[in-house]
Design a protein around this nucleic acid. Sequence first.
DNA 1: TCTTTAATAATAGTAATACTATTAATTTTG
DNA 2: CAAAATTAATAGTATTACTATTATTAAAGA
Lengths: 224, 224
Amino acid sequence: MEQLLPYLKLTINRKLYIKDPESSPLGKEIIRQSIDLINEVGFEKYTFKKLGQKIDSNESSVYRYFENKHKLLLYLSSLYWGILEYRLVFETNNIDDPVKKLEAAVDVVVGTPQHIDTGSQINLLALRSIIIAEFTKSYHNKSVDLENKEGFFEEYKRLINRVVKMVLGLNSNYPYPKSWASNLIDGGLHQHFLVEHFPSITDCSKKQPPNHFFKNQIKGLIKA
Amino acid sequence: MEQLLPYLKLTINRKLYIKDPESSPLGKEIIRQSIDLINEVGFEKYTFKKLGQKIDSNESSVYRYFENKHKLLLYLSSLYWGILEYRLVFETNNIDDPVKKLEAAVDVVVGTPQHIDTGSQINLLALRSIIIAEFTKSYHNKSVDLENKEGFFEEYKRLINRVVKMVLGLNSNYPYPKSWASNLIDGGLHQHFLVEHFPSITDCSKKQPPNHFFKNQIKGLIKA
DNA sequence: TCTTTAATAATAGTAATACTATTAATTTTG
DNA sequence: CAAAATTAATAGTATTACTATTATTAAAGA
């Protein structure tokens, strides 16, 4: 199992929270309901005040868990990528054929999220919607480099590097394994977004989801 | 010349501005200096007040041109995509070989921006930096669908659809021409961002820029 | 040239946001 | 059961994204 399980719970960078939200019912409620609220009103209109009301608690109580909403978004993102990493390793572990392995990886990484028991019950579909709509905002700012140094994007990068290995397992001479993998993650989110909001510039749809588009590229990868 | 030139100046949606910034020296200064200022401090910290000071003018004067900074970002984006569309048509017009044509398209669309005379002198490299860092924010919000209906993303979609035609010119049976083209635009920006901030998850660099990565995919497109 | 109009500048003000600080009430734990 | 930790409630601050009003300057028409 590639010593993975210890990650899932543990790797969310401690600097992302003040008090571990997994350590109390209020903390878990903050996560659960933040996902719903951000999904509902969007990250810009989401405030700790509104969240406090929603969870029958208080703005200042939320601030005891998270320094600010930006950090909370980074936390949710890490959670999402962590869950995907878990499923990625789990679901590709026993596949030997490198093509099938990468196909399975694409399905995990850009396909519909499968439920997984993470202790607290979170709405994974809502979480993915948030990631699709808001993840880019978490790094498109002037403090990326600092926050990257602090390790706030480790889960994200680790996931990508797992895909990179699978691409190389398919064709060790392919010159763009990292770009292909990072484009898979980012592009997967983007195609999902287009299906919802800009259907005229994507061939993907509910019936032909984004993972099909990327799996279609795999044969090209072998020869490249 | 595919009746293109009339576009460039004219197509920026009138609803994006209150008073056409091209219609006065102050307006042109607003655009020019906004590009510099956003590039410098980031879109979040960019305010009309700061801009007013920078151009030795006034916050309220800026508001006479743009309803808010979100509209200004949409304006700058349309300007950028409009310029690319112009160059795209111009530089691929005389190429018959569909592979070479698409390669040229990729170079225009994700390569380094070439200077073009747009009347007012704008810093195209700075504008591209803004697009790389901020364009996704212009549609990742709750009003996308409305704003899309209003035509605020026409330049963007038109550019993509021009690339779509070239992909189909190469292989009319390829099932994902739109997704490939939209992924080219979005993924191109993303790879540029990675080169600057997350070099560990991209194979691209200054020497091996993102357009190489996408041109490498073209052969796979023919057989797909 | 004078006058009207339009464009711009200056100032002030408002509602909302993203917090901080303080104190009070409640829970947990040793 | 007392001390410590957690949570709730309230208030306050700096900044932002505007709106409104008035004053000043420039341009354009008669």
